[in-house]
Computed example of a mutant assay.
Amino acid sequence: MRQKIERGTENLALADRENFSAISKLLSQWRDEESALLTRIENRAIELAPLPEAIDVIERMGENFANLKSAGRVQLAHAIRLTVASITIGTRNATTGGIKHPELFGELTAHPSLAKKPMPIPDEAIGRRKIWREIADLVRQSKTPLHLKDFCDHIGTEDASHAACHVRRAERAGLIKKVGHQGGWVNA
């Protein structure tokens, strides 16, 4: 709506006398619509039910996930404001097997009429990669023992010592174990 008003104002400045009143009238209607929308947005904290537009955005989000990058920042921010009540991200100490490590955690709380419980945000989505956990998942999914070369390929490195460091962490956490000298690693 803001873009329409800005474009209308530019057109009004360039309009000749014949079109001036029509553009002015249309611009006035758009300003009234914008005012009504802003009032609805400001009153959203009072209303328990979300705006129908917000529900439509959530319903279509799965279908249009690929288009989010091309979405307008203003529209996307507006949709998020209407649907997300809060986002909490923090760090807590965790223990996995024999390893004590900081773990990122997060939760997203949606508008009460959309979701009753907060939704957890995995630490991978927050931005910290736990390669030793990825290695343990890879071993868990494999039907045969995996070797250091497999882990190098998964990590995307040619440095075997880098992969070995993460394999040792996964072993210390008790998630994988070595089978013999040349046997590789299997699920613990």
Rank of each mutant, 00 (worst) to 15 (best):
L114M: 15
S142K: 06
A115P: 06
W132V: 09
R140G: 04
I121T: 01
I135Q: 05
G127S: 00
V139C: 04
L114K: 04
I155H: 00
L146N: 02
V139N: 03
P112M: 08
P118A: 11
I126A: 03
E124P: 00
I131W: 07
P118Q: 14
A136N: 09
H154R: 05
E124A: 15
Q141L: 11
A160L: 13
I121D: 01
A164C: 07
F151V: 06
R128V: 15
R133H: 13
T144E: 15
Q141I: 05
E124H: 09
I135F: 13
S113K: 12
K116S: 11
S161H: 04
A115D: 09
L138K: 08
S142V: 06
P122H: 04
H166L: 08
D159S: 08
Q141R: 11
S142D: 12
I131P: 00
E171C: 07
R172K: 12
K116P: 04
C165D: 13
R133K: 14
A164F: 02
T144H: 11
G127Y: 00
Q141S: 08
P145S: 04
V167A: 03
S113L: 15
G127V: 05
P112G: 05
R129N: 10
L148K: 06
I131Q: 01
A170Y: 01
T144S: 14
E134H: 03
I176M: 10
C152G: 04
E134A: 14
R128E: 06
P118I: 08
D150M: 04
L146Q: 05
R133A: 05
R172F: 00
D153F: 12
I121V: 06
A125Y: 10
H147Y: 08
I135T: 07
K117Q: 14
A163N: 00
I121L: 10
T144M: 08
E134Y: 02
V167F: 03
M119R: 08
R133P: 14
I155S: 03
D137S: 14
T157Q: 02
A164P: 02
W132N: 01
D150F: 09
T157F: 00
L148H: 01
G174H: 09
L175G: 12
P120I: 13
P122C: 06
S113H: 12
R129A: 12
H166S: 09
A173M: 00
V167Y: 05
G174L: 06
R169N: 10
R140W: 04
I121Q: 11
G127L: 07
D123E: 14
R168S: 11
R128P: 07
D159I: 13
R133I: 15
F151G: 01
I176A: 08
E171K: 15
I121E: 04
I131V: 10
E134D: 15
P118C: 07
G127F: 03
D153N: 14
I121F: 04
A160G: 01
A163Q: 01
D150L: 05
W132Q: 07
E134Q: 08
A173W: 00
A164N: 09
H147L: 11
G156H: 02
R133T: 10
E124I: 13
S142N: 12
K116D: 10
I126R: 11
C165M: 15
